[in-house]
């Protein structure tokens, strides 16, 4: 619980940190269950990312706007209530927009409620910051989450079924690499991406140290 600093980070920093420096999936390793479960195809990954972003942004806004009235003792219950409300709304909305997507995402839409990234942002950010900052934080984190889902979804769809957005890439002679569509393949690809981002991070750090000398 840090005291409110007089000079906070700029609006742009608030937005951009979720994309890269504090990416919820690749750096904080939060909300990995839907990341592994629904990223069989790009369409599912995008839909899940957008649904989660919507819930995150809406709950951040509402929680930030009522943060002064909510007593500390009941805050978690209130946050869960708010998050569950927006998840229910998203659930209805997806069903109304496309039954195909709804079927593909299945139980994982309802499980956005327990995505620790969303409760994490409510507790760590929205409960201490203005509505505007919370909105930016929500969008940044949501886009970062979607980006991570798309990273996995693209690799898994290309290798696992030879397609991208449902469009055949390699023709009929390509034998799909079934394991990438299976849950175990999700872990493999996720591990690969973590390795890649870790390597980027390490290289950046090494360069910074080199500059300092």
């Amino acid at each position: 619980m840090q005291p409110a600093t007089p000079k906070g980070p700029s609006d742009f920093d608030t937005f951009i940190k979720g994309l890269w420096k504090e990416n919820p999936v690749m750096v904080q390793l939060l909300g990995c269950c839907p990341v592994l479960a629904v990223t069989i195809s790009m369409r599912n990954a995008l839909a899940m990312g957008l649904a989660t972003t919507f819930v995150l942004v809406c709950s951040n806004i509402l929680i930030a706007s009522i943060r002064r009235f909510v007593p500390k003792q009941v805050r978690i219950a209130v946050y869960i209530l708010v998050i569950a409300t927006f998840v229910t709304i998203v659930d209805y909305a997806i069903k109304a927009i496309s039954v195909d997507v709804y079927k593909a995402l299945g139980a994982f839409i309802a499980l956005i409620v327990v995505n620790c990234m969303i409760l994490g942002r409510a507790e760590a950010f929205a409960s201490k910051n203005t509505v505007w900052k919370s909105l930016l934080d929500g969008i940044g984190m949501g886009v970062g989450f979607t980006f991570a889902l798309v990273c996995l979804g693209s690799v898994r769809e290309i290798l696992g079924s030879g397609r991208l957005f449902g469009i055949d890439l390699f023709g009929p002679r390509f034998e799909p690499w079934g394991i990438f569509a299976a849950p175990s393949g999700g872990f493999l690809v996720f591990g690969g991406w973590l390795l890649f981002f870790g390597w980027l991070q390490a290289r950046k750090q090494a360069r910074l140290q080199g500059d300092a000398k």
Binding site: I66, F69, V70, P71, Q73, V74, A77, V78, L81, V82, A84, T85, F86, T88, I89, Y92, A93, K95, A96
Partner: peptide, 23 residues
């Protein structure tokens, strides 16, 4: 505390009902 939770719950309930009616 009870008042705050009731208020938030009512607000959430209204939101859900509205979403249900629309969709």
């Amino acid at each position: 505390m009870i008042a705050v939770m009731t208020l938030v719950a009512t607000l959430c309930g209204l939101l859900i009902v509205a979403a249900y009616q629309i969709t």
